[in-house]
Write a protein that binds this DNA or RNA. Structure first.
Lengths: 204, 204
DNA sequence: AAAAAATTTTACCGTGTGGTAAAAATATTT
DNA sequence: AAATATTTTTACCACACGGTAAAATTTTTT
């Protein structure tokens, strides 16, 4: 039986989550410090610890928040129409996520680089199930002769890899192109090229 | 005028670089600790600091070692034959790198997530030049009507993204498939699927 | 307006971490 | 074998970092 969160609580907890996302995205759960997060959130360290009682608790909350958004993204697509439509839609969603939750994507990247100790248990079955579904859909397409015979899991990885790349490695991309996904024109160009190559790559 | 490095020096410096690569790969330059590196290298912290006088120095040495291997990989390919041959060869080389230098790839990933403060200056021009060359080659192919008209830079990013994904996110890949690139069969399957999709994606 | 509850600040503490000094031990050269 | 140079260990130090206690302040309720 939880008491209703006060106005200030709601605001400040979100401030901490936002700041935490930025800092964890850059330095990972180990490299990030409470002081950094507190400063970015615009409050003193003890004040921050009034809302989250430890660094680990902030990290877990950040991971969970990001996770929910990510899972939602993965589930939002539908096998409504043709493979072409479905894949296009899937890539769209993933690109949108990379643009709108770049920091979150990087928090994930850091967590996985650390061996995914938390994500493994947080995601566990859930992701396996989702990937299983996707694999089955793709296998169906192959059986129905709608796409070339490829190993489904690697197509999924390809799409994840490429879309996440634009979020996770934006620092590199920016040095090389001067652009990020925030640049509308660049965003569309990247999405178009990737979609084109993957579609032509798998469609018969 | 450097004095000749002793037998023990050569062995132990390499031990530190190897251990450093592993630890920095997991926790990044900030999250990694000298103690961790020393333990993994099988020596005491002061002993390690006898060979490298600071954490930063270890990190720079690790980055540089990895960078050289990576640049070599990027330069090893040749525009000898057809786009098909060339791209296949390029993907091959990148996959090989991901398998044989997975930890190094992760060190890079961490560095870029941190904003690439060191890599930016270490790579600077070099990478720009290399990418510029690749871009020009691809543009040539398009002009000669050998491949579809795509935006070259995104094709390059795609290949980097996918190949690096298998090294950087191997923890995730392992939970989902139970395999890594060390598994010969999985390695070949991944390479084959990725090559197939990209070739079909760009070839006319 | 007074009382109660929630929030923020100040002043800390123990531990982890980067790094050093100097003695002890080991290798190498003479 | 003695002398010298190199390597390793022991014993530290200062500061960063995670976290706490309690007083001071602000907000909300009565």
């Amino acid at each position: 039986m939880q008491k209703k969160r006060s106005r200030i609580q709601i605001i400040n907890q979100q401030k901490v989550l936002d700041a935490g996302t930025e800092v964890f995205a850059k330095y990972g759960s180990r490299g990030a410090t409470i002081d950094q997060i507190a400063e970015m959130a615009g409050m003193s360290k003890p004040n921050l610890l009034y809302y989250f009682k430890s660094k680990k608790e902030i990290y877990l909350a950040v991971l969970e928040q990001t996770l929910n958004k990510w899972l939602q993204c993965l589930m939002e697509w539908q096998v409504t129409g043709s493979p072409e439509e479905t894949i296009t839609n899937y890539i769209n969603k993933k690109f949108e996520f990379s643009r709108d939750h770049a920091a979150g994507s990087r928090v994930f990247a850091n967590e996985i680089l650390e061996g995914a100790p938390i994500l493994k248990s947080l995601l566990g079955e859930e992701l396996m199930r989702l990937v299983g579904e996707d694999t089955r859909v793709i296998k169906g397409w192959i059986k129905d002769d709608l796409i070339r015979p490829i190993e489904p899991i690697h197509l999924i990885f390809m799409i994840w890899a490429v879309t996440q790349h634009y979020a996770d490695f934006s620092a590199q991309i920016e040095t090389l192109t001067g652009k990020t996904l925030d640049d509308e024109k660049f965003y569309k160009q990247a999405k178009k090229t990737v979609t084109q190559i993957i579609l032509n790559g798998v469609l018969k």
